[in-house]
Design a protein around this nucleic acid. Structure first.
Lengths: 65, 65
DNA sequence: TTTCTTTGTAAAGCTAGCTTTACGTAAAGT
DNA sequence: ACTTTACGTAAAGCTAGCTTTACAAAGAAA
């Protein structure tokens, strides 16, 4: 699943570390997410959407298999 | 996390079994989801939103801790 | 050049999401 | 009465999401 976490994060001038602290996850989780290593849980997706003030669909692009 | 899976499913006149087959998950997954036993993965949330033709936010209500 | 910041990634471990199998129950059809 | 349909739930197991710890590398900055 593609995502715009990196773009949205940088638009806010935040580092991966900043973001991880705000969302209460590890920095590696953010790094791995941005690199597309795995999909976020729905709660993490919601946390990101709140912080970025947009919908989950605007951050994560789902393509059916 | 609250959700409207049961309501949306019934609005389509589908059984839990129908839905589970359409989404390629087990019936227990649907049952447990409706009962609020656990949160869906983001891919399952996307599958539901496609089928129900609405956003993830219209199905799942996130309340921060 | 040395230091600091930011990021990538690996390994090992924990837990949540989901599976398969299975049994119980209640309602409706026959 | 029997069978079928729809749902709840439990136990055991697998895997993905996330953690902690740790090390490496590139760029900026001193």
């Amino acid at each position: 699943m593609e995502n715009l976490v990196r773009e949205k994060r940088m638009a806010l001038g935040m580092t991966q570390d900043d973001l991880s602290i705000r969302l209460d996850v590890s920095r590696q989780t953010i790094s791995s997410l941005e690199k597309g290593r795995y999909n976020p849980s729905i709660t993490l997706a919601f946390k990101l959407s709140k912080l970025f003030q947009c919908t989950i669909e605007e951050i994560f692009i789902y393509e059916e298999e």
